[in-house]
């Protein structure tokens, strides 16, 4: 049984309410990890894992408040299937021999407002967008030995053009060496970061804004997390 991989991206707007936006997403993923260690999950159902983790947060003595997008992928080696759950605009991408064979769908209420799990402070429930954990898109997909799996936050997908990501991922097709994987993960994160501060770059984010009638140019400075893995069966 492979441990699941996941990213969660806290919603920054909470800073204005004195809430650390990283706290909710941190505890969400930590709790997922703990549930897996205790065997409290179904290996074919990462969205249930996400839901359990979310409801668990209420029982923490420390009031964990905030909201977050999340993406969890789980490889089941027995049937060579990747099980995924995604809520909001973080996501995953699977590359096989230079071609993207699967990627997650973005879930947005409207432009730049992704679906999100949230625990708002009591009294603010009406004012906050909150999607139930069962709104997560669950997917499963057969993988092959050597496939490259990228799980990342929107800071990566909004700043790196599709072709650039694929170009990088191709380099680690079938790679078993952790440090080479780490190098490519580093370069993806660095490129995303550099481009996010480039004010003249026509980023995927800018293109999407333009399609929504908003005239903007340049990258989108945002939190960037990259998880890179290859399938070894």
């Amino acid at each position: 049984m492979q441990p699941p991989r996941g990213v969660a991206d806290g919603v920054g707007g909470w800073r204005a309410y004195g809430i650390d936006p990283g706290e909710f997403s941190f505890h969400l993923m930590r709790t997922c990890e703990r549930l897996v260690k205790l065997g409290r999950f179904t290996p074919t159902n990462p969205s249930d894992l996400l839901a359990k983790s979310y409801y668990e947060l209420l029982h923490h003595k420390k009031a964990v408040l905030g909201s977050s997008t999340a993406c969890v992928v789980l490889l089941n080696k027995e049937n060579c299937t990747l099980y995924t759950a995604n809520i909001g605009d973080s996501g995953f991408m699977v590359v096989r021999r230079g071609r993207v064979v699967r990627r997650s769908e973005e879930q947005q209420h409207y432009f730049n407002t992704p679906f999100q799990l949230s625990l708002p402070p009591p009294g603010y429930q009406q004012d906050v967008l909150s999607d139930r954990p069962d709104a997560a898109i669950a997917d499963n997909f057969p993988v092959e030995d050597g496939d490259v799996i990228l799980v990342a936050t929107d800071g990566v997908f909004d700043n790196l053009p599709h072709s650039l990501i694929v170009n990088e991922l191709v380099k680690v097709q079938g790679e078993r060496c952790a440090s080479r994987l780490q190098m490519v993960a580093n370069s993806l994160a660095w490129m995303a970061r550099n481009l996010s501060f480039d004010e003249t770059f026509i980023s995927p984010f800018a293109e999407s804004a333009f399609a929504n009638g908003i005239n903007t140019i340049g990258g989108k400075p945002d939190d960037i997390t990259v998880i890179l893995a290859t399938v070894a069966i």
Binding site: R34, L38, R40, Y55, E56, H59
Partner: peptide, 14 residues
């Protein structure tokens, strides 16, 4: 609570 694992006896497993 019985459906929750935080602070629960099950944490002694493993």
């Amino acid at each position: 609570n019985s459906n929750s694992y935080y602070y629960a006896p099950i944490n002694l497993v493993g």
